[in-house]
Design a protein around this nucleic acid. Structure first.
Lengths: 216, 216
DNA sequence: ATAGTTATCAACATTACTGTTTATAACATA
DNA sequence: TATGTTATAAACAGTAATGTTGATAACTAT
């Protein structure tokens, strides 16, 4: 007996555009990655979350590996877009960045290292991705970021004349330092801070203040 | 026809001690991880490299997951041992560390970020390992490192009197900064430097010089 | 309407990865 | 030499993941 004739749910189909479908699937993959880490990236699990079958994923991405590559690229692009948004906000408000106002740096840290962003980024790096697919976007983004930092350097220098190439070089170093630190912080931070003895919630803030004060 | 009686190679056995076998297998796993990333950590691949069968691995480690845990713990311990060795060398030679001599910092960077060490470390972090098995070792190591940095700080301060707790706090920040930077550098460095425009072999050295000069 | 396209699903096929069992070779110890 | 222990291997089993095929529902364009 049991299910006599409950009629095998006809299963209505939602037909999406390829773009919508890909976006939906990538969103599901991302949430899965954040939730359970790289091991959660099996297409059947992702399909279940997205509400589709796994063969739909294969239809849109070709293979499970291709899905992962697309995910990695998309995440890095999103990340940079977020950082750029932070920078633009600063320029609009025409704020001083350093050393009296650390908010921008803080928000960069938040974007890059908090909320699991860095762990996801680490995943993309560790898996050996070269991100060549997103190269154009990335390069353009960094140029804009660099322009912002150069401005900040000149502002911080005040009266002193700063040669363009010196400021530019300085800017590259600063960007590189902030980026690597934020990435490392996001990845190893929780474990590391505890081991070193930087405990308490204010320790994170203190460190970032200390760091910001030494940047320029 | 074909293989008539080429006698199915009797397959001589090498009998190792449990310690040797475990070490051999972990070495193979590590090289595999460095070569092809986390996806390369399947026990059959590892077994092939180690020259044993996969059931031998299961015999010694219990399960594939247990092997990965052992690998993560061993790698972190090795890493810290290497760094400690660098610190001890400095103390023996009684060198100045900063700002006139950057060799120690350079070697820490080398150990932490070059040669794929950081990528392996990132893998241990990303996979959510809490490393509780190696906790004692890690904590002790960091205490010794911190002691070294405190000495360096006081030396750098010269005549000025530095309160112990200030130096200690400063030391923690510096250790944290160097560690996170080195980790981020090791993970994102190659891609990031190229994107930012820090190209050429000397760019790495220049950055590290610039960084070291700003540490104290 | 009609025809063509394709995003979707369901069922099947296949690989690959982990884990199990049994036998034996290598070594230690008495 | 005899006996026990165990590290190793080979073959098998189970399961989970990817990939394939064919049919169809949803949409587009004629």
């Amino acid at each position: 007996m049991a299910n006599t004739a409950t009629a095998e749910a006809p299963k209505k189909r939602i037909r999406r555009s390829p773009e919508e479908a890909r976006a939906l699937i990538l969103r599901a993959a991302k949430s899965r990655l954040k939730a359970v880490g790289p091991e959660g990236l099996q297409i059947k699990e992702i399909a279940a979350i997205a509400g589709v079958t796994h063969s739909t994923i294969l239809h849109h991405f070709g293979s499970a590996e291709d899905l992962r590559i697309s995910l990695a690229e998309q995440m890095v692009e999103e990340l940079l877009a977020d950082i750029l948004a932070v920078m633009e906000t600063r320029e609009e408000r025409d704020d001083k960045v350093f050393p009296d106002d650390h908010t921008v740096l803080f928000r960069v840290f938040e974007v890059l290292s908090d909320d699991g962003h860095a762990r996801l980024l680490a995943w993309t790096m560790v898996r050996g991705g070269d991100l060549s697919g997103a190269e154009q976007t990335l390069r353009a983004s960094f140029e804009r970021i660099q322009a912002g930092v150069v401005m900040a350097i000149k502002a911080a220098a005040g009266d002193m004349v700063v040669k363009d190439e010196v400021a530019e070089r300085h800017a590259r170093f600063i960007i590189y330092l902030v980026a690597t630190t934020a990435v490392g912080d996001g990845i190893a931070g929780p474990n590391l801070a505890e081991l070193i003895g930087l405990t308490g919630t204010e320790a994170t803030k203190d460190f970032r203040d200390w760091f910001a004060a030494r940047l320029f």
